[in-house]
């Protein structure tokens, strides 16, 4: 007997937005909320492939990335995580919380001067999210959050490779505003769902949990995700116990 892949349908929830917009904090809290309810969750972040990371760090430090090289290297990172970490979990029925998805590439790479159809073609066939949220926050709010975290801005993060501005914070402000406009255009097209990221963290969670409810109903109707159905004794999933995770 083979495992019924449709018993749990995986769901992909994506958070998009400029740096400092509060995506990571919100995703972390959603992760805790879902996990507490026994819902299987996997979190993934942009630019986090363990294979690509050392190469990414090396070439960024050298400041070698032209817009095309930047785009291709991040696509390489994405596909490593997509095929190896994300798709198997979606197929197995997990909720995947993605801190950035292909829209980050669409926005960043086009702000860097690349053609949108070319960037989109790199990601053709990639699964569309069940919910893609744009965390909308003005650049000055993002800057105050980053300053509060006492974090240094980096060369590419602040867009200094294209802005021509010597001052890193001024460049960051210029770059983030460009990206904000590109994100808002995607929200206008209905590709991203606009979310007010200037709300308090508590109010943000109230809204986000409400948005996630319809998506999660299938999980609440199911029995234990990690428990094989009583008549399915030969399924490979029987060897997985919740405590293993």
């Amino acid at each position: 007997m083979t495992m019924d892949h449709n018993a749990f349908r995986g769901h992909l929830i994506v958070a998009e937005g400029t740096d400092g917009s509060g995506k990571s904090t919100a995703m972390s809290l959603l992760d805790s909320w879902l996990t507490a309810q026994g819902i299987p969750v996997y979190r993934t972040a942009w630019n986090s492939s363990s294979f690509i990371k050392p190469i990414m760090r090396h070439v960024k430090k050298k400041e070698w990335l032209s817009p095309a090289a930047f785009s291709l290297l991040h696509a390489s990172d994405f596909y490593d995580r997509y095929h190896r970490l994300i798709l198997p979990r979606l197929e197995a029925g997990y909720v995947v919380l993605a801190d950035r998805w292909v829209y980050t590439a669409w926005v960043r790479d086009t702000v860097r001067g690349l053609d949108l159809p070319w960037v989109q073609s790199l990601y053709q066939g990639v699964r569309e999210p069940d919910l893609a949220i744009y965390f909308s926050a003005p650049p000055d709010v993002a800057i105050s959050r980053i300053k509060h975290a006492a974090r240094e801005l980096k060369y590419y993060e602040s867009g200094q490779d294209i802005s021509g501005l010597h001052d890193r914070w001024a460049s960051f402000l210029w770059f983030q505003e460009k990206m904000r406009q590109a994100y808002l255009a995607l929200a206008d097209q209905g590709i991203l769902q606009l979310f007010d990221a200037t709300l308090s963290i508590t109010d943000q969670q109230k809204v986000l949990r409400q948005w996630l409810r319809p998506i999660l109903e299938s999980y609440w109707q199911q029995s234990d995700f990690f428990q094989a159905p009583a008549d399915d004794t030969t399924s490979s999933i029987t060897s997985i116990k919740k405590g293993d995770f």
Binding site: S49, F51, I52, P54, I55, H58, V59, W64, L65, S66, A68, A69, L72, L73, A75, S76, D77, Y79, D80, H83, R84, L122
Partner: peptide, 29 residues
């Protein structure tokens, strides 16, 4: 760094190709 990953079967063809393409883009530029 590439040699370390080259024969790791976990790295897919798409990711590997894009990595080589990014290297060419760097060398080009």
């Amino acid at each position: 760094q590439n040699t370390l990953n080259k024969h790791d079967r976990r790295v897919g063809d798409t990711s590997r190709h894009l990595l080589y393409a990014s290297f060419l883009a760097i060398v080009m530029h």
